[in-house]
C-alpha cells in the first residue's frame, strides 16, 4: 500500500476509535490489559526497577521485615524480595508465552487436519489428545519434567505439549462446521490443493476461538509453572521464580516472616488474574451472544 498521509491519519483515527470502543465494550479486558502491560514492562525493563541484584545476598540482613531500604524485606538468604519479585515476571512471561506458542503450533494444525479429513485419522488424533487430558495436568507435567530433566526448556516444552489439545479441539470444532460451507466447496471447485484450503481459507476462519483462548491458557501456564517450581521440579531454589520463592518463604510463614512468601504470591495472583480477565474480556468481545446488553 502506498503511504498517503491522509489515509494514515484516517487509519490512526480509526485505530483510536477502535481502542476506545473496545475499552467501552469490555472493561474487564481493559483491566486485564493494564495488569498484563504492567507486568510486561516490569519483565522487559526489570533492570530499571530493581533496587538490588536479585541473587546477591546481604549476609548481614537475613530475614529483615519490609523497610525503606528493602521494600518487601529480605529472604532467608538475605536477598532483596522486591527485586526478586520484579525479576520473577521474566519467568512468568518467559514460560507462558513460548508454552502457548508451542501449544498453538501443535494444536492448531492437528485440529485443522483432523477436522477437515475426518474419519479414522480424526478419531485417532482426538483419542490421543483425549488421553493427554485424562491425566491431571500437574501430575503429568511433574512426571515428564522429572523424567526428562530439570530445565526451563523442558518445562516450556511439556506445558506447550500438554496444552495443545485445547487448541486442537477448538479449531477442529470450527473446521467441522466450515468444511461443508459453500466457500470451501468453491475453493475446491477452483482447483485449490488441500494445503491451500487448510491454511488460506480454513485457518483464518477457524482460529478466532483459539486466539481468544490464548490469554486464558497463558494464565494456566503461569500457574502450572509456578506450581512445578513450588514442588521443586524444573526451576530450582535460588532462581528468582515466584513459585520457588513461595516455597522458600513457606517455611518462614510459621515463624512470622510472612513477607518472603506473600509478595511473590500476590504478584503471581495478579498476573494470573490479569491474563484471565483479558481472556474473558476477549471472548465477550468476539462473541456477541455473551455481551451484556446495556
Amino acid at each position: 500500500m502506498t503511504g498517503r498521509s491522509p489515509s494514515n491519519l484516517w487509519t490512526m483515527a480509526r485505530l483510536g476509535n477502535r481502542i476506545r470502543g473496545i475499552s467501552r465494550l469490555s472493561p474487564t479486558a481493559t483491566a486485564g490489559v493494564i495488569i498484563i502491560l504492567l507486568f510486561g514492562v516490569l519483565a522487559l525493563f526489570s533492570d530499571m526497577f530493581m533496587p538490588h541484584d536479585p541473587v546477591s545476598s546481604f549476609t548481614d540482613r537475613i530475614l529483615q521485615p519490609p523497610s525503606a531500604q528493602h521494600w518487601f524485606g529480605t529472604d532467608g538468604n538475605g536477598m532483596d524480595v522486591f527485586s526478586r519479585v520484579i525479576y520473577g515476571a521474566k519467568f512468568g512471561f518467559g514460560i507462558a508465552i513460548p508454552a502457548v506458542i508451542i501449544a498453538v503450533l501443535i494444536g492448531v494444525p492437528v485440529g485443522l487436519i483432523a477436522g477437515y479429513r475426518g474419519g479414522l485419522l480424526d478419531e485417532v488424533l482426538m483419542r490421543i489428545f483425549d488421553g493427554l487430558r485424562v491425566f491431571p495436568s500437574i501430575i503429568l507435567a511433574l512426571a515428564v519434567v522429572a523424567a526428562t530433566g530439570q530445565s526451563l526448556l523442558n518445562v516450556v516444552l511439556v506445558l506447550g505439549f500438554l496444552d495443545s489439545p485445547v487448541f486442537a479441539r477448538l479449531v477442529r470444532s470450527e473446521v467441522l462446521a466450515l468444511r461443508s460451507s459453500i466457500f470451501v466447496e468453491s475453493a475446491i471447485a477452483a482447483g485449490n490443493p488441500t494445503w491451500r484450503i487448510l491454511f488460506l481459507h480454513l485457518l483464518p476462519n477457524s482460529i478466532q476461538g483459539a486466539m481468544a483462548q490464548t490469554a486464558v491458557r497463558a494464565a494456566w501456564a503461569v500457574r502450572i509453572s509456578a506450581t512445578l517450581a513450588f514442588l521443586g521440579v524444573g526451576i530450582q531454589a535460588p532462581t528468582p521464580e515466584w513459585g520457588a520463592m513461595i516455597r522458600q518463604g513457606a517455611e518462614f510463614m510459621v515463624s512470622g516472616q510472612w513477607w518472603v512468601a506473600i509478595f511473590p504470591g500476590i504478584a503471581l495472583i495478579l498476573l494470573v488474574f490479569g491474563l484471565n480477565l483479558f481472556g474473558d474480556g476477549i471472548q465477550d468481545i468476539l462473541d456477541p451472544r455473551r455481551r451484556v446488553s446495556k
Binding site: 460451507s181 459453500i182 466447496e185 475446491i188 471447485a189 477452483a190 485449490n192 481459507h201 476462519n205
Partner: peptide
C-alpha cells in the same frame, strides 16, 4: 479445475471467503 473448467455456483455471497 479453476483453470480450464470453472464453476459459478448459487449463493454468491457465501461462496466467497
Amino acid at each position: 479445475r479453476g483453470a480450464e473448467i470453472a464453476m459459478v455456483v448459487q449463493n454468491p455471497r457465501s461462496s466467497l471467503d
